[in-house]
Simulated assay, not measured.
Amino acid sequence: MNIALLANPTAGKGRRAALLPEVVARLEAGGHAVDVVTATTRDGMVERGRAAVAGGKAVVAMGGDGTVHLGLQAVAGTGAAFGIVPAGTGNDFAVRLGLPGDTLHAADAIARSTGTRDVDLARVEGGDGTTAWFGAVMAAGFDAFVNERANRMRWPRGPQRYNLAIVGELLALRARRYTMRIDGNESVFESVLVAIGNTESYGGGFRIVPGADPADGLLDVVVAEPLSRLTLMRLRPKVFKGTHVRDPRVSTFRAKTVELAAEGVTVYADGERICPLPVTITCVPGALNLMC
Rank of each mutant, 00 (worst) to 15 (best):
R16W: 05
P100Y: 00
A17D: 07
A76R: 06
T89W: 01
A51E: 15
T257N: 00
E200V: 09
L235K: 05
H32Y: 09
V223F: 12
L235S: 03
G12Y: 09
N147W: 00
S228M: 06
S187K: 15
I110C: 04
A18E: 05
D118G: 10
M180F: 04
V34W: 05
F134H: 13
M45E: 03
A39H: 10
D183G: 11
E259F: 05
A61Y: 03
G83K: 06
T78F: 04
G203D: 13
P285I: 11
A111C: 02
A80M: 09
N185V: 15
D92A: 00
A261L: 13
C275S: 15
V75W: 00
T114W: 10
M138K: 01
M291A: 12
A18G: 08
L5F: 07
G49R: 10
N289I: 00
E186A: 14
R152C: 13
N147I: 00
A80T: 11
V188L: 08
A144D: 04
L70A: 03
R123M: 12
D43N: 03
L6N: 09
W133Y: 15
D92N: 06
L20C: 13
G135Y: 00
R152V: 08
A261S: 15
K238C: 05
V250Y: 10
A11G: 03
V37G: 04
T114S: 14
A52R: 06
D120A: 08
G49W: 06
P9M: 13
T10E: 05
G286I: 03
L72A: 01
L260N: 09
R177H: 14
T282F: 01
E272H: 02
F134A: 10
G264P: 15
D183V: 11
I110K: 04
F82Q: 04
P9D: 05
G115S: 15
G184S: 10
V223N: 09
G63M: 01
P156R: 11
L99V: 08
L193S: 06
E148V: 02
I3R: 09
L193G: 04
G56R: 05
R181S: 11
K241I: 02
A25W: 07
V279F: 14
L70F: 01
I84F: 06
P9E: 07
R246T: 10
G135C: 08
G79S: 07
Y268P: 05
A269S: 10
G141D: 04
A106Q: 13
G126N: 08
G56C: 05
L193C: 01
F145R: 15
R16S: 11
V59C: 11
